[in-house]
Nucleic acid binder design. Structure first.
Lengths: 187, 187
DNA sequence: TACTATCTTGAACCAAGGTTCAGGTTATTG
DNA sequence: CAATAACCTGAACCTTGGTTCAAGATAGTA
């Protein structure tokens, strides 16, 4: 029982970090179709090391997603707190958030597709539930203030995010946001 | 010189038709990731026969896309003619066209993605060029009339069509159109 | 330093899917 | 019917990319 497991070796910790960093960068800018070998190359380790830290490619990609999803949840929650506590403008906060999602969605979307095709289903975590609640509050505030479309719903946001052009270059994504923006605001 | 090429054999003609039909059905409902073997199976021929009629997979998919694209081109051209000749409202025609594309894309699923992912680049055919021209005229007319967004471009339409939620149920697709519409019209 | 559990390496394995081609079949012509 | 060009077949080839594992290297410890 009292078995004291020896601490993880320092090189293992370092390599895990390098792998995650390389995976995040590559998946972000080139999509989920990057090969494990390429990630290994950028991380400066051998393929085998990837599999020591992440049993399968889906696990590695999931780890990247988790990071990204966490940041987004934090972003909405903070946006809602600025509105609730500091009387920030809900519409502006919402648009800023959507823009941020658009950036991150390049990772998130690709990953979702990858996860689906690999059979790894996303389970709704606590954090994600908190994010959804904050988003709901933000929208309600904007509708009440009359700056957001009167019938805007959380599902509309999901719909737009799900259809944003994640695999296009930044200027295309920005243009898309410009086109979509009027539909979110009061007509 | 006077060489009279023997006419194509009847079984070749029949098989080509079967292959195209099978490809259209499979690509339409399961996306571009269907394998050549599977298409061959549904067409009741061997893989080799596919390659006899279409040098590469990209060529086969392109042929399917071309069919579908032709119908859409006809639709825009007619819309533009209604505006030019019958003084129809450009914005209304444009929105109707987008709605039609949305329908077609729903049935058609990933044909467009197929073309892109296979690098089968739109070697802009005559028909497609005519369609693009008609679309351009339609947009110009709407901008001139002041009913469409002042800086709307043909590329914006491509962007929106490329990102519409084709795999969602009709009510979701309608909602998406509702959300996007204001971005197309004059602010 | 010597020892060993932990970690790393990278060649090799395997499955999937696009593509080829030598050989067999068949439509067409005279 | 004979002759042949056109066509079809499908096993095998090849590349790509995920995954494994036996052998070697190394961090931590006494």
């Amino acid at each position: 029982m009292g078995e004291q497991a020896r601490a993880r070796r320092s090189d293992a910790v370092r390599n895990r970090g390098r792998i995650l960093t390389a995976a995040r960068h590559l998946v972000t800018e080139r999509g989920p179709q990057v090969s494990m070998s390429e990630i290994a190359g950028h991380a400066g380790v051998a393929v085998g090391t990837l599999y020591q830290h992440f049993p399968t490619k889906a696990d590695l990609v999931s780890a990247v997603v988790a990071e990204q999803a966490g940041e987004l949840v934090d972003a909405v929650v903070q946006a809602w707190e600025r509105v609730r506590d500091d009387h920030a403008e809900p519409a502006a906060e919402l648009l800023a958030f959507v823009e941020r999602v658009l950036e991150a969605a390049a990772v998130d979307r690709a990953v979702k597709a990858a996860a689906r095709s690999l059979g790894a289903e996303p389970e709704f975590s606590d954090a994600e539930a908190r994010g959804a609640a904050a988003l709901g509050h933000l929208i309600d505030a904007g509708r009440a203030a009359g700056t957001l479309r009167h019938d805007l719903a959380v599902s509309d946001l999901y719909l737009l995010v799900a259809t944003c052009p994640t695999d296009q270059p930044p200027e295309v994504r920005r243009r898309w946001l410009t086109l979509v923006r009027p539909g979110l605001l009061r007509q």
